Computed example of a mutant assay.
Amino acid sequence: MGEDKISLTKEIKFKIITPENLIELIDIIYEDYEKNLNLFNEKKEEKEPKFTITLLKSDGESNETREYKKLKEEKKLYNTNYEGIKVSYTEGKEENRIEFAIIAQRSYFRREIFSDEWNNGIKISGKNEEWVRSKFDKINRIISNWKDQCKIFKECYGIISILFIAFWCAIIGGVIYIFTTFFHLIETWWFFGVIGFIIAIFLGVTTSDKIAQYFPYVELLTGPNHLHYEDEKRKNIIFFILVIVIPFLFVLIGILLTNLITKTP
């Protein structure tokens, strides 16, 4: 065992985190704390291990406690909506340390930095390299099994934006055609067309950005199940894109190609 500290970190991103996920992870940390607390009480260890869990509510109020068992028995993670959860554990003699923090992220495209204490991730450090690596590997396996956030916007944001721009172009173009035809302004269609195209770009990008908010960077699903509408909204959004937007554009392209072929001598 060397004198230098070793530190291993893992950022948590694009995950949907449930109370079951949190309990499984915190249980591992708390079991190690209890083991070392018993050794301390038997005077086999020089330093008392420390464990705290901090719960951050949506109104900004935070509660810090060492009574994890009580929190677990009262099913707080199931009954209360929390914006963030932080766990800090110091082993004792070797000063091995585990720091774990999760905070809900409203943004999809970037990680919001709240403070050094509230970064989504886990950090395990200490002088005992075997202990650090063992705990890190175990916790890393647990986090890897958490449900992934849908990455459709991460991987296909540009394509989806183009789809919505085309969708709005078709709708606005149809309105402009009806308007210019009805008021006999067909010769000025290009003027309205340019304005309509600019509006379609704005609406297409705005629509994509708004929808992306339902696929947050980190989603924390504590509290009663009936308060979680995001999953249902995501299904509706994907359904809308697959069943309405894309078929609509295919039909429009088909009509345009048919007219082009028909008019070709």
Results as ranks from 00 to 15, higher is better:
K263D: 03
N140C: 03
I143D: 05
Y82H: 05
A101K: 01
T264Y: 14
K138H: 12
S58F: 12
E45C: 10
F197R: 04
S62T: 14
I17Y: 05
A170W: 02
W146Y: 06
W189E: 15
I85G: 03
F250M: 14
L221H: 05
A104M: 08
N38E: 15
F109A: 10
E24Q: 12
L25K: 04
K57I: 05
G193P: 09
K263L: 06
T258V: 09
V194F: 14
K47S: 10
D137N: 05
G121C: 06
E3W: 10
N81E: 13
I162H: 06
A200M: 12
V194P: 06
S62D: 05
K154L: 07
I139A: 02
G2A: 11
I172W: 03
G254Q: 00
T18P: 02
Y177G: 00
G2Y: 10
L256Y: 09
F248I: 08
R110M: 04
R66Q: 14
E99W: 07
L71I: 11
I237S: 05
G60E: 03
Y30P: 05
L55G: 00
L220I: 08
K5F: 00
L220T: 02
K75S: 07
I160R: 05
T180V: 15
K44I: 08
D231H: 04
D116P: 03
N36Y: 15
Y214G: 09
E112T: 09
G174T: 07
V243L: 11
I176S: 06
D116I: 11
N236F: 00
T18Q: 00
I172F: 08
R133Y: 04
W131F: 15
Q149W: 03
A166R: 10
T188R: 15
F248E: 08
E34F: 14
L163K: 06
D137F: 06
I241A: 04
I113D: 05
F182G: 01
C156H: 14
E3A: 10
G173P: 08
E34A: 13
I102Q: 00
I186G: 04
S125P: 00
I176W: 11
F40T: 02
D27I: 06
K15Y: 02
W190M: 11
L257W: 09
E67C: 09
G196H: 01
R133V: 09
E187M: 13
I172H: 06
I28F: 08
K75Q: 11
K93Q: 14
K10M: 09
F153W: 03
I28H: 11
K69E: 15
L256M: 10
F164P: 00
T18F: 07
I160F: 05
G60Q: 06
F167H: 12
I241H: 07
I102V: 01
G193C: 12
K123M: 02
F202E: 12
K138W: 07
K44Y: 07
K10V: 02
R141T: 12
Y217L: 01
A170N: 08
T264P: 04
T206I: 13
W131N: 08
K86A: 06
K123S: 09
E46M: 15
E187Y: 15
P247H: 01
F136T: 00
I176R: 12
E34G: 10
I201G: 02
H184W: 11
M1G: 15
E73G: 11
I165P: 04
S58D: 12
D116S: 10
L8K: 09
F51C: 03
E42S: 15
V218D: 00
I162S: 10
